[in-house]
C-alpha cells in the first residue's frame, strides 16, 4: 500500500508561494526521486498560478470557483481521490490562495492522506505591515509546521535579525513546535533543509 503525504503551501498574498513551489517540486522530483502532484487553488476567475506552474513543465491541477477551506471542499477531496487512484503520488502539494484558513483544510483532507505538513511563507520586508493589517496572517503562522521567512535576499542583516526575533516571539507564544527557516525561493537560498524535512 503506497502512502501519500500532503504538503500545504500557504502564506499571505504575494509572499512567493508559486515561486517556491516551482523550486520545491523540481527538487522533490529530481533530487529526491518523489512522485508528486500539485493542486492550485487559484484566487478569482483567472488561473494565474496554475498556468504559471504549467509553463514550468509542472502539471498543476486547478481548483477554481471557490476556496478549498470553505466553498469547494468537495472539489479538493475529489481531486485528492482522483490523483491517488490514477497517479499514486508520494506527495501532493496544495498551493492555497493567500487568504485561506488552515483548520478547515486539515479537517477536509485528513482522512484521505497519510500525513499533512504545512509550510507558511512570510515576506521579510512586509511582515510588520501584514501582521498589523490582515488577520489571516496570524492564522497561517499559528498552524504551520514550518515557517519560511522568504525573500531574505532583500533584507540587510539588521532587518533580518529584527524580523527573526519578532517571528520567533510570535511562535514561542502561539506555535512553539513551528520550525523557522530562512529562504529565498527566487535566489534558491536555504531550500535544502526544507526539502529534506519534507521527505524525512
Amino acid at each position: 500500500m503506497f502512502e501519500t503525504n500532503f504538503v500545504i503551501v500557504t502564506g499571505f498574498l504575494g509572499t512567493g508561494k508559486t515561486t517556491f513551489i516551482i523550486e520545491l517540486a523540481k527538487r522533490l522530483t529530481e533530487e529526491k526521486d518523489k512522485k508528486i502532484n500539485i493542486l492550485v487553488n487559484d484566487f478569482g476567475q483567472i488561473a494565474i498560478d496554475g498556468e504559471t506552474l504549467n509553463d514550468f513543465g509542472m502539471e498543476a491541477k486547478r481548483i477554481t470557483k471557490g476556496c478549498v477551506c470553505c466553498e469547494v471542499k468537495q472539489d479538493l477531496v475529489a481531486q485528492i481521490r482522483d490523483l491517488k487512484k490514477n497517479f499514486e503520488p508520494d506527495i501532493i502539494i496544495l498551493e492555497t490562495s493567500g487568504v485561506a484558513s488552515l483548520l478547515p483544510i486539515y479537517r477536509t483532507v485528513e482522512q484521505y492522506v497519510d500525513e499533512i505538513e504545512t509550510l507558511t511563507l512570510i515576506d521579510v520586508s512586509r511582515y510588520d505591515k501584514l501582521m498589523e493589517k490582515f488577520r489571516t496572517v496570524e492564522n497561517q503562522l499559528t498552524f504551520a509546521d514550518r515557517i519560511l521567512i522568504n525573500k531574505i535576499d532583500l533584507a540587510d542583516d539588521e532587518e533580518m535579525k529584527k524580523i527573526e526575533e519578532k517571528v520567533s516571539k510570535f511562535l514561542n507564544k502561539e506555535n512553539p513546535d513551528g520550525q523557522l527557516h530562512k529562504i529565498s525561493a527566487r535566489k534558491k537560498i536555504g531550500l535544502e533543509n526544507v526539502v529534506s524535512g519534507i521527505v524525512q
Binding site: 478569482g44 470557483k65 470553505c70 490562495s97 487568504v99 493589517k133
Partner: peptide, 23 residues
C-alpha cells in the same frame, strides 16, 4: 453560479478589508 462564487473567498476578503478586480 452566482457572482459571489465566481469572485471567490469573499468572506475571507471582507475579514481583512480586501477587495479585488480582474482584467
Amino acid at each position: 453560479m452566482n457572482e459571489k462564487n465566481l469572485d471567490h473567498s469573499h468572506g475571507h476578503l471582507e475579514q481583512d478589508n480586501l477587495d479585488s478586480f480582474t482584467l
